[in-house]
Amino acid sequence: MSVDYLWQPKGTGRPAGISLKTEHFSDILTSRPAVDFLEVHAENYMTEGGAHHRYLEEICAHYALSVHGVGMSLGSAEGLDPAHVARFKAVVERYRPTIVSEHLAWSVSGGTYLNDLLPLPLTVESLDVVVRNIDTLQQAIGRSVLVENPSSYLSFKSSEIPELEFLVRLAERTGAGLLMDVNNVYVSARNMETSPEEYIDAVPASLIGEVHLAGHAVKNIDGVELRIDDHGSAVSPDVWALYERLITRVGPKPTLVEWDTDIPPLSILVAEAEKAKAVMNALEAAHV
């Protein structure tokens, strides 16, 4: 199996990309913004036909693609749904993306799909389950994937392995890389009262195949603040600071700005990606 999560694009080596939303299809084709890659959710391209396939095929002629799964349920105790694995494989074979990724989460139990990235107790048992499921997925598609750290709203008393150690151990056992979502690190740390800086400082640079940035919402529940990872606004200043901290230590990594609700005009998303690129460029220049 090839280790293809370490994408070294031609040119600058500092690729910055954005989510590809249906709202921006024609705008992207006419304005051809200077972003290095685009990311789609695999599940949105599992239909046999439709205009969105025709657009994506055309867009792929001009941009590198990342296929990001949101429904594989790598943490399901019952294992992966073979039908879903087959659909995922078909998307990967059809579009031959540069990056393929999924989440450390579960969303299926007893054959019911809960349309959410649900938290796992981080135990030896669940580590075995996730390793087995990643193996199944990677065997099916014939390539390695990146696994994204979750945004958390709750944790389990039975958890015995810290999240980052859990991710590193499953990467070591499966050959998968990490998709380091800096916004998720921040959201989880604020919600679980831990240090986002400690987490960011401990991520092994060599495992990071992609970085995610996104905006989140702040909710007030009976006087207590809760951060919700809704991908519906600009990246927050605190998350930019964490990103800079990460990139300073690990060097440039393909970075993608996600935006999934309250989608703004394309130019706003492109400007966010340019900001990420500027962070990478500035640090690179400082090192010379």
């Binding site: 959410d116 709750l154 679980m192 009262e193």
Partner: peptide
Amino acid sequence: LEAVVAGKLTSAQRMRVHQNNFRQTL
């Protein structure tokens, strides 16, 4: 509820994030 760590929010409030997410997104 007993399996979930509470903290500043109760276990039920934390679970509600996921309960609401399911209903609202679908």
